[in-house]
Simulated scan of single mutants.
Amino acid sequence: MEALKQQQNEINDFFLYMELSKLQKNKNNKKILQEIALQEKSHYEFWKKITKKDLKPQKWLILMYIFLAKLFGISFTLKLLEKNEEKAEDFYKKLILKYPQAKKIYEDEKTHEIKLLNMLNDQKLLYAGAVVLGMNDALVELTGTLTGIALAFDNAKYVGITGMIMGIAASLSMAGSAYLEARENADSTIEPKKYAIYTGFAYILTTAILVSPFFLIKSAKVALVFMFIGAVVSILFYNFYISVAKDENFKKRVGEMFLITFGVALISFIIGYFVNKYLGIEI
């Protein structure tokens, strides 16, 4: 029964918003989340009168969203919740004729997104630019460099060690540049040290993903394939996060990153191919 399903969603959301409000240090964010939680509870009571059943929250679902909030930030989690709210709106539109009282609930659901968008003050999303800087730079530089080296020298460990050394050195350089950039930035909400840490960490993490196949696989060329798989997964995962958290176009973002990353890799492939063919260098 659809009414029971929606009733379950409402009690889940009530407990979830209350738990998320406890994670908020920002008083305004906390207040709005608690207000929305109480609205969800009133929606639950409405459906309870219709179904004549008392439902308990699904604890596993609530814990999952809390985990996402702690890992990826409140913005990402709330956007995922709002996508479920959009489905609920379609459901309420159909029920307004049968249950006129559902119109008030529908209007509440519509205001949720506006309030949530206005309240978002998420540190993880605030430093998303630093993550983009570190990740993009690592993807572009290392995929291109490792491709060229792997095609010139058929020694996987040599390629992996070279990539690791380059990645660590570049991450420190990028972190330093990010610190100076943030310090000169007029945005007082961004702390230069944190900006530098996010940038350097994103670079190091991306480096680890890209070079690990060269330490696990003997053939440099086979490892190269898995390196590209790691790059693709990284691009898809990060852009999914940003597209949800910032309501941006997922396909457009992915397309741009693919074009830049693999365009540089293609150029490096050509260079590595000619080095290998005409210079005959092999380690």
Rank of each mutant, 00 (worst) to 15 (best):
Q39G: 15
F215D: 11
P57W: 09
I281Y: 10
L63W: 05
W47G: 05
A138Y: 08
I281F: 14
K251A: 11
A128I: 13
N185D: 15
I149H: 00
F226K: 11
L210E: 02
E19T: 09
V254D: 13
A170Q: 14
G144M: 08
V232G: 03
I271R: 08
I161A: 08
M174Q: 11
A102P: 06
P57K: 08
E181G: 05
F237M: 05
Y278G: 05
K194H: 10
L78Y: 02
L68Q: 05
I165T: 15
L80K: 14
K103P: 00
V225K: 04
E248K: 10
V222T: 13
Y44A: 03
M135W: 01
A220I: 04
E248M: 13
K98R: 09
I242H: 08
F201G: 05
N26C: 09
L224G: 15
K104H: 01
G129W: 03
K22E: 15
M166I: 14
I197C: 01
K56Y: 10
F72V: 09
V264H: 10
E86F: 00
V275D: 05
E107P: 05
E109L: 03
D137P: 14
L146G: 07
L142H: 11
L120F: 00
A3R: 13
D90K: 09
L68W: 04
K93L: 13
A202Y: 03
V232S: 08
L259D: 06
E191V: 07
K110W: 00
I209N: 12
L142D: 01
L236Y: 07
M257T: 15
V225A: 13
G160N: 04
T199R: 04
I11Y: 08
F67I: 15
V140C: 05
F228A: 03
I36W: 12
V131I: 13
K70I: 03
M1L: 07
Y238T: 08
L38W: 04
V244P: 00
F72E: 01
L210V: 01
P100L: 06
K56L: 13
I114L: 10
G176C: 04
H43V: 14
K83R: 04
E10W: 06
F262I: 08
E35H: 13
L63R: 02
I235A: 10
Q8F: 02
V264K: 11
L55I: 04
Q39P: 00
L139A: 01
Y44S: 03
L126P: 01
